[in-house]
Amino acid sequence: MDFLIYAILAVTMQNGMFTRLLGFGEAMELADTPKDIWPFCLTLTVQMVLSSMLSWGVLALLPAVNANVYIRPLVYILSMIVVYAAFLALGHFAKVQFIKRQNKQLLALSMFNCSVLGALLLTGTLKMSFLRSIGFGLGSAVGFLVAAFIVLEGKRRLVTSQTADSFKGLASMLLYAGIISMALCTLYGTSLPF
């Protein structure tokens, strides 16, 4: 039950992109190449779920590291690197076509972005249980996918609209994200649940 609640929270009220602007730059880049959204989000999901499992395990084994707020982020980054290396090894040795065919720059971007690290840092700060952290990681990845499609649709429509020259591009997209963020405020009130 915890798993499900935290996953739903991460998609809706805690949607990293519209409540914390995590991964907005990546979503803006993806909006230029919509065919990359699915592979990007799939690798991001794998990274989020596996690195949250791995970092949870490491931090459970090393309570001294878990208590040190200066060292904990390093554990998350190392977990992300391990998953990335495993992913590359799968592509290289097991010849997994999905990984081999992916744009390497996009692969690195999907593995190392603030959306992934943000979700990991939140699970650590709130000392979530194993299931909760996996649920939150999975929910954050699905939340990113939903938000990426919202950004894509917004960008597509705003490009063809009669926006003032000064507000074309990033400015109008931020206003659009601001309005969605304002709508989400009606769900969580005056401060984020966590």
Partner: peptide, 21 residues
């Protein structure tokens, strides 16, 4: 709240683009 930051940033970007033009 976050949305206020987003809207303020959008206005600043608009002003920057205008000044650039």
């Amino acid at each position: 709240l976050p949305f206020a930051g987003l809207i303020l940033l959008a206005l600043l970007i608009g002003a920057f683009q205008y000044a650039k033009t």
